[in-house]
Amino acid sequence: MSALVDDLIDGLALGSVYALVALGFVVIFKASGVINFAQGSLLLFGGYLTAVLHDDLGFAGALAVAVLATALLAGAVDRLLLRRGDPDPRMAHVQTIVTIGVDIVLLTDLSRRIGGDLLSLGDPWGDAVVTVGQVTVAESRIAAIVVSAVAIAAVFALFRWTPWGLSLRAAAEDTEAAALMGVRLGRVRMLAWCLAGALAALAAVFLAAFPAPGLERTTGQIALKAFPAAILGGMASPPGALAGSLLIGLTEALVAGHQSDLHVLGEGFGDVAPYAVMVLVLLVRPTGLFGAKGAARV
Protein backbone atom coordinates (compact mmCIF):
# COMPACT_ATOMS: atom_id res chain seq x y z
CA MET A 1 0.00 0.00 0.00
CA SER A 2 2.69 2.45 1.01
CA ALA A 3 4.58 1.53 -2.15
CA LEU A 4 1.57 2.62 -4.18
CA VAL A 5 1.36 5.93 -2.30
CA ASP A 6 5.08 6.41 -2.89
CA ASP A 7 4.60 5.86 -6.60
CA LEU A 8 1.65 8.21 -6.71
CA ILE A 9 3.57 11.00 -4.99
CA ASP A 10 6.57 10.40 -7.23
CA GLY A 11 4.29 10.55 -10.23
CA LEU A 12 2.63 13.70 -9.03
CA ALA A 13 5.98 15.42 -8.44
CA LEU A 14 7.29 14.31 -11.82
CA GLY A 15 4.07 15.32 -13.50
CA SER A 16 4.08 18.77 -12.00
CA VAL A 17 7.64 19.36 -13.19
CA TYR A 18 6.71 18.15 -16.66
CA ALA A 19 3.76 20.50 -16.48
CA LEU A 20 6.12 23.47 -16.10
CA VAL A 21 7.93 22.49 -19.28
CA ALA A 22 4.78 21.49 -21.15
CA LEU A 23 3.14 24.81 -20.30
CA GLY A 24 6.14 26.48 -21.87
CA PHE A 25 5.57 24.50 -25.08
CA VAL A 26 1.89 25.39 -25.07
CA VAL A 27 2.40 29.11 -24.42
CA ILE A 28 4.92 29.35 -27.25
CA PHE A 29 2.74 27.31 -29.58
CA LYS A 30 -0.30 29.43 -28.84
CA ALA A 31 1.55 32.68 -29.39
CA SER A 32 3.63 31.77 -32.42
CA GLY A 33 2.60 28.38 -33.82
CA VAL A 34 6.16 27.21 -33.27
CA ILE A 35 7.14 24.07 -31.43
CA ASN A 36 10.17 25.05 -29.44
CA PHE A 37 12.75 22.31 -29.68
CA ALA A 38 15.21 24.46 -27.77
CA GLN A 39 13.17 24.14 -24.58
CA GLY A 40 15.46 21.37 -23.34
CA SER A 41 18.61 23.41 -23.71
CA LEU A 42 16.93 26.49 -22.21
CA LEU A 43 16.16 24.32 -19.22
CA LEU A 44 19.76 23.22 -19.05
CA PHE A 45 20.90 26.84 -19.36
CA GLY A 46 18.77 27.84 -16.38
CA GLY A 47 19.99 24.90 -14.33
CA TYR A 48 23.61 25.63 -15.22
CA LEU A 49 23.33 29.28 -14.19
CA THR A 50 21.78 28.30 -10.87
CA ALA A 51 24.55 25.78 -10.29
CA VAL A 52 27.33 28.24 -11.08
CA LEU A 53 25.91 31.20 -9.17
CA HIS A 54 24.56 29.62 -5.99
CA ASP A 55 27.89 29.84 -4.17
CA ASP A 56 28.00 33.61 -4.50
CA LEU A 57 24.36 34.61 -4.48
CA GLY A 58 22.78 31.90 -2.38
CA PHE A 59 20.18 29.56 -3.80
CA ALA A 60 17.30 32.02 -4.00
CA GLY A 61 19.40 34.74 -5.60
CA ALA A 62 20.95 32.35 -8.09
CA LEU A 63 17.57 30.95 -9.03
CA ALA A 64 16.13 34.43 -9.50
CA VAL A 65 19.03 35.42 -11.78
CA ALA A 66 18.77 32.13 -13.68
CA VAL A 67 15.03 32.47 -14.23
CA LEU A 68 15.44 36.05 -15.42
CA ALA A 69 18.41 35.26 -17.68
CA THR A 70 16.69 32.26 -19.25
CA ALA A 71 13.57 34.32 -19.86
CA LEU A 72 15.68 36.99 -21.56
CA LEU A 73 17.52 34.39 -23.62
CA ALA A 74 14.26 32.84 -24.79
CA GLY A 75 12.87 36.26 -25.62
CA ALA A 76 16.04 37.11 -27.51
CA VAL A 77 15.84 33.90 -29.54
CA ASP A 78 12.35 34.86 -30.59
CA ARG A 79 13.10 38.52 -31.24
CA LEU A 80 16.44 38.18 -32.99
CA LEU A 81 16.21 34.86 -34.77
CA LEU A 82 12.64 33.85 -35.35
CA ARG A 83 10.71 37.02 -35.96
CA ARG A 84 12.40 38.57 -38.93
CA GLY A 85 10.18 40.01 -41.59
CA ASP A 86 7.70 37.45 -42.70
CA PRO A 87 4.86 36.92 -40.23
CA ASP A 88 3.35 34.30 -42.57
CA PRO A 89 1.95 31.56 -40.33
CA ARG A 90 3.30 28.97 -42.72
CA MET A 91 6.74 30.10 -41.63
CA ALA A 92 6.07 28.33 -38.33
CA HIS A 93 7.41 25.15 -39.92
CA VAL A 94 10.68 26.80 -40.77
CA GLN A 95 10.92 28.57 -37.42
CA THR A 96 10.45 25.23 -35.68
CA ILE A 97 13.54 24.01 -37.45
CA VAL A 98 15.41 27.19 -36.50
CA THR A 99 14.77 26.29 -32.86
CA ILE A 100 16.43 22.94 -33.58
CA GLY A 101 19.49 24.83 -34.79
CA VAL A 102 19.44 27.00 -31.67
CA ASP A 103 19.12 23.88 -29.55
CA ILE A 104 22.14 22.28 -31.21
CA VAL A 105 24.34 25.32 -30.59
CA LEU A 106 23.20 25.89 -27.00
CA LEU A 107 23.39 22.24 -26.08
CA THR A 108 26.86 21.82 -27.56
CA ASP A 109 28.11 24.78 -25.61
CA LEU A 110 26.52 23.78 -22.32
CA SER A 111 27.66 20.17 -22.56
CA ARG A 112 31.17 21.37 -23.28
CA ARG A 113 31.07 23.46 -20.12
CA ILE A 114 29.43 20.84 -17.94
CA GLY A 115 31.46 17.95 -19.35
CA GLY A 116 31.01 14.79 -17.30
CA ASP A 117 30.34 16.68 -14.05
CA LEU A 118 27.37 16.43 -11.76
CA LEU A 119 26.56 19.94 -10.63
CA SER A 120 24.78 20.63 -7.38
CA LEU A 121 22.22 23.39 -7.51
CA GLY A 122 22.55 24.14 -3.80
CA ASP A 123 18.85 23.75 -3.16
CA PRO A 124 17.79 23.95 0.50
CA TRP A 125 16.04 20.57 0.60
CA GLY A 126 19.03 18.31 0.16
CA ASP A 127 18.16 14.70 0.82
CA ALA A 128 15.83 15.40 3.78
CA VAL A 129 12.70 13.31 4.01
CA VAL A 130 9.38 13.65 5.77
CA THR A 131 7.70 10.59 7.26
CA VAL A 132 3.95 10.49 7.62
CA GLY A 133 2.68 7.19 8.99
CA GLN A 134 4.30 4.54 6.82
CA VAL A 135 5.00 6.81 3.88
CA THR A 136 8.34 8.50 3.44
CA VAL A 137 8.55 11.39 1.05
CA ALA A 138 11.57 13.40 0.01
CA GLU A 139 11.18 17.08 0.84
CA SER A 140 12.32 18.00 -2.65
CA ARG A 141 9.33 16.11 -4.05
CA ILE A 142 6.95 18.08 -1.87
CA ALA A 143 8.68 21.31 -2.83
CA ALA A 144 8.36 20.33 -6.52
CA ILE A 145 4.63 19.80 -6.16
CA VAL A 146 4.01 22.97 -4.14
CA VAL A 147 6.20 25.31 -6.20
CA SER A 148 4.90 23.95 -9.50
CA ALA A 149 1.33 24.29 -8.33
CA VAL A 150 1.92 27.91 -7.37
CA ALA A 151 3.73 28.67 -10.63
CA ILE A 152 1.07 26.98 -12.71
CA ALA A 153 -1.70 28.80 -10.86
CA ALA A 154 0.13 32.07 -11.48
CA VAL A 155 0.41 31.29 -15.21
CA PHE A 156 -3.29 30.47 -15.42
CA ALA A 157 -4.07 33.71 -13.61
CA LEU A 158 -1.90 35.53 -16.14
CA PHE A 159 -3.89 33.98 -18.97
CA ARG A 160 -7.20 34.78 -17.37
CA TRP A 161 -6.85 38.21 -15.83
CA THR A 162 -4.06 40.21 -17.43
CA PRO A 163 -4.23 42.25 -20.64
CA TRP A 164 -1.35 40.15 -21.94
CA GLY A 165 -3.29 36.95 -21.32
CA LEU A 166 -6.28 38.35 -23.13
CA SER A 167 -4.10 39.39 -26.07
CA LEU A 168 -2.50 35.97 -26.17
CA ARG A 169 -5.84 34.22 -26.25
CA ALA A 170 -7.11 36.61 -28.89
CA ALA A 171 -4.00 36.14 -31.03
CA ALA A 172 -4.25 32.36 -30.75
CA GLU A 173 -7.90 32.49 -31.74
CA ASP A 174 -7.47 34.67 -34.83
CA THR A 175 -4.13 36.31 -35.46
CA GLU A 176 -5.33 38.69 -38.12
CA ALA A 177 -8.36 39.93 -36.25
CA ALA A 178 -6.28 40.39 -33.11
CA ALA A 179 -3.74 42.47 -35.01
CA LEU A 180 -6.49 44.59 -36.49
CA MET A 181 -7.94 45.19 -33.04
CA GLY A 182 -4.62 46.63 -31.92
CA VAL A 183 -2.97 43.64 -30.29
CA ARG A 184 0.78 44.01 -30.65
CA LEU A 185 1.54 40.50 -31.79
CA GLY A 186 5.29 40.91 -31.56
CA ARG A 187 5.18 41.89 -27.93
CA VAL A 188 2.69 39.17 -27.04
CA ARG A 189 4.93 36.63 -28.71
CA MET A 190 8.10 37.77 -27.03
CA LEU A 191 6.52 37.75 -23.59
CA ALA A 192 5.24 34.24 -24.25
CA TRP A 193 8.76 33.12 -25.06
CA CYS A 194 10.09 34.82 -21.92
CA LEU A 195 7.48 33.07 -19.81
CA ALA A 196 8.37 29.70 -21.32
CA GLY A 197 12.05 30.33 -20.60
CA ALA A 198 11.34 31.24 -16.99
CA LEU A 199 9.24 28.09 -16.50
CA ALA A 200 12.00 25.95 -17.98
CA ALA A 201 14.63 27.43 -15.63
CA LEU A 202 12.34 26.74 -12.68
CA ALA A 203 11.77 23.16 -13.81
CA ALA A 204 15.54 22.59 -13.99
CA VAL A 205 15.81 22.99 -10.21
CA PHE A 206 13.46 20.11 -9.49
CA LEU A 207 14.86 17.87 -12.20
CA ALA A 208 18.27 18.16 -10.58
CA ALA A 209 17.05 17.96 -6.94
CA PHE A 210 17.39 15.07 -4.56
CA PRO A 211 16.35 11.75 -6.05
CA ALA A 212 18.32 12.82 -9.12
CA PRO A 213 22.07 13.01 -8.55
CA GLY A 214 22.40 16.62 -9.78
CA LEU A 215 22.49 18.57 -12.99
CA GLU A 216 24.12 16.68 -15.86
CA ARG A 217 24.41 17.53 -19.49
CA THR A 218 21.61 15.08 -20.30
CA THR A 219 19.14 16.76 -17.92
CA GLY A 220 17.75 18.79 -20.81
CA GLN A 221 16.61 15.63 -22.58
CA ILE A 222 14.00 15.16 -19.91
CA ALA A 223 12.23 18.13 -21.44
CA LEU A 224 11.47 15.86 -24.39
CA LYS A 225 9.09 13.93 -22.17
CA ALA A 226 7.04 17.07 -21.81
CA PHE A 227 6.35 16.79 -25.55
CA PRO A 228 4.01 13.84 -25.12
CA ALA A 229 2.47 15.70 -22.20
CA ALA A 230 1.74 18.77 -24.29
CA ILE A 231 0.52 16.76 -27.28
CA LEU A 232 -1.66 14.52 -25.13
CA GLY A 233 -3.59 17.49 -23.86
CA GLY A 234 -3.87 19.12 -27.26
CA MET A 235 -0.99 21.43 -28.08
CA ALA A 236 -2.95 24.66 -27.72
CA SER A 237 -4.66 23.92 -24.42
CA PRO A 238 -3.02 24.87 -21.10
CA PRO A 239 -5.40 22.76 -18.96
CA GLY A 240 -4.75 19.94 -21.39
CA ALA A 241 -1.02 20.29 -20.86
CA LEU A 242 -1.56 20.08 -17.12
CA ALA A 243 -3.71 16.94 -17.40
CA GLY A 244 -1.32 15.40 -19.90
CA SER A 245 1.68 16.07 -17.67
CA LEU A 246 0.08 14.47 -14.64
CA LEU A 247 -0.93 11.46 -16.74
CA ILE A 248 2.61 11.11 -18.10
CA GLY A 249 4.21 11.58 -14.67
CA LEU A 250 1.94 9.02 -13.01
CA THR A 251 2.41 6.53 -15.85
CA GLU A 252 6.15 6.82 -15.65
CA ALA A 253 6.27 6.45 -11.87
CA LEU A 254 3.83 3.52 -11.80
CA VAL A 255 5.59 1.65 -14.59
CA ALA A 256 8.95 2.22 -12.91
CA GLY A 257 7.44 1.11 -9.57
CA HIS A 258 6.07 -2.11 -11.03
CA GLN A 259 9.14 -2.83 -13.13
CA SER A 260 9.37 -6.39 -11.83
CA ASP A 261 5.83 -7.23 -12.91
CA LEU A 262 6.38 -5.75 -16.33
CA HIS A 263 9.70 -7.35 -17.20
CA VAL A 264 8.17 -8.62 -20.46
CA LEU A 265 8.44 -5.07 -21.75
CA GLY A 266 12.13 -4.90 -21.03
CA GLU A 267 14.26 -3.01 -18.57
CA GLY A 268 13.76 0.73 -18.31
CA PHE A 269 10.35 0.72 -19.93
CA GLY A 270 9.32 3.49 -17.53
CA ASP A 271 11.44 5.93 -19.53
CA VAL A 272 9.60 5.25 -22.76
CA ALA A 273 6.14 4.59 -21.30
CA PRO A 274 5.08 8.24 -21.83
CA TYR A 275 5.52 7.79 -25.56
CA ALA A 276 3.50 4.59 -25.59
CA VAL A 277 0.69 6.40 -23.77
CA MET A 278 0.88 9.22 -26.29
CA VAL A 279 0.48 6.87 -29.26
CA LEU A 280 -2.48 5.17 -27.60
CA VAL A 281 -4.20 8.49 -26.92
CA LEU A 282 -3.56 9.78 -30.42
CA LEU A 283 -5.06 6.61 -31.89
CA VAL A 284 -8.33 7.44 -30.19
CA ARG A 285 -8.20 11.23 -30.32
CA PRO A 286 -5.89 12.54 -33.06
CA THR A 287 -6.05 16.12 -31.75
CA GLY A 288 -5.28 15.24 -28.14
CA LEU A 289 -7.52 14.98 -25.11
CA PHE A 290 -8.53 18.62 -24.99
CA GLY A 291 -7.74 19.63 -28.56
CA ALA A 292 -10.44 21.32 -30.59
CA LYS A 293 -11.69 19.40 -33.57
CA GLY A 294 -10.99 22.40 -35.78
CA ALA A 295 -13.75 23.03 -38.27
CA ALA A 296 -12.58 24.64 -41.50
CA ARG A 297 -14.56 27.22 -43.38
CA VAL A 298 -13.99 27.35 -47.12
Binding site: I35, A92, H93, T96, L224, F227, P228, A230, I231, M235, L265, G266, E267, G268, F269, D271, V272, Y275, A276, M278, V279, L282, L283, P286, T287, G288
Partner: peptide, 27 residues
Protein backbone atom coordinates in the same frame (compact mmCIF):
# COMPACT_ATOMS: atom_id res chain seq x y z
CA UNK B 1 -1.90 7.65 -36.48
CA UNK B 2 -0.11 8.91 -39.59
CA UNK B 3 -3.33 9.11 -41.60
CA UNK B 4 -5.24 11.19 -39.09
CA UNK B 5 -2.71 13.27 -37.22
CA UNK B 6 -1.81 16.47 -38.95
CA UNK B 7 1.39 18.43 -39.59
CA UNK B 8 3.35 19.33 -36.51
CA UNK B 9 1.31 16.97 -34.29
CA UNK B 10 2.57 14.09 -36.36
CA UNK B 11 6.11 15.35 -35.81
CA UNK B 12 5.80 14.92 -32.09
CA UNK B 13 3.75 11.72 -32.36
CA UNK B 14 6.55 10.18 -34.40
CA UNK B 15 9.00 11.05 -31.62
CA UNK B 16 7.37 8.09 -29.91
CA UNK B 17 8.59 5.77 -32.67
CA UNK B 18 12.20 6.77 -32.11
CA UNK B 19 12.11 6.21 -28.37
CA UNK B 20 10.01 3.05 -28.44
CA UNK B 21 12.12 1.75 -31.32
CA UNK B 22 15.35 2.43 -29.46
CA UNK B 23 13.97 0.63 -26.43
CA UNK B 24 13.00 -2.31 -28.63
CA UNK B 25 16.47 -2.46 -30.20
CA UNK B 26 18.06 -2.60 -26.75
CA UNK B 27 15.60 -5.16 -25.38
Amino acid sequence: VAGRVRGIYLGVATLALVFLGHHLLLT
